[in-house]
């Protein structure tokens, strides 16, 4: 049976972690803008040069994947905060 103080401390850390996970997912804005820009430019390129469709498509996917990386970092941090929280273990003592 843990003391009331320790339990409220844990609750505080868990609540802050949930807020932190939510804030971490703001990182999703960047890849959204980046991938949309890549897709738009890809459409323009296909419109201008329809015969190079295959090359444009694979280059665009490559660029979109690289733009996605920062968003995935944010997602990984949010997942760690929610499901494998390292901060709660710090207040065991």
């Amino acid at each position: 049976m843990e003391s009331f103080e320790l339990a409220s401390l844990r609750a505080f850390v868990l609540g802050c972690s949930a807020i932190g996970a939510g804030i971490a997912m703001i990182a999703g804005v960047g890849p959204g803008i980046g991938q949309g820009y890549a897709a738009g430019k890809g459409c323009e390129a296909v419109g201008r040069q329809p015969e190079a469709r295959g090359t444009i498509m694979s280059t665009m996917l490559l660029g979109a994947a690289v733009a996605e990386t920062t968003g995935i970092y944010g997602l990984v941090i949010a997942i760690i905060l929610l499901f494998a929280n390292p901060l709660v273990d710090l207040i065991q003592k």
């Binding site: 994947a65 990386t69 970092y73 997602l75 990984v76 997942i79």
Partner: peptide, 16 residues
């Protein structure tokens, strides 16, 4: 790091 996190994050996100 970015190669592994990209694949891992995408698939784990889908799984969750």
């Amino acid at each position: 790091v970015s190669l592994s996190f990209r694949l891992f994050g995408n698939i784990l996100g889908g799984t969750i």
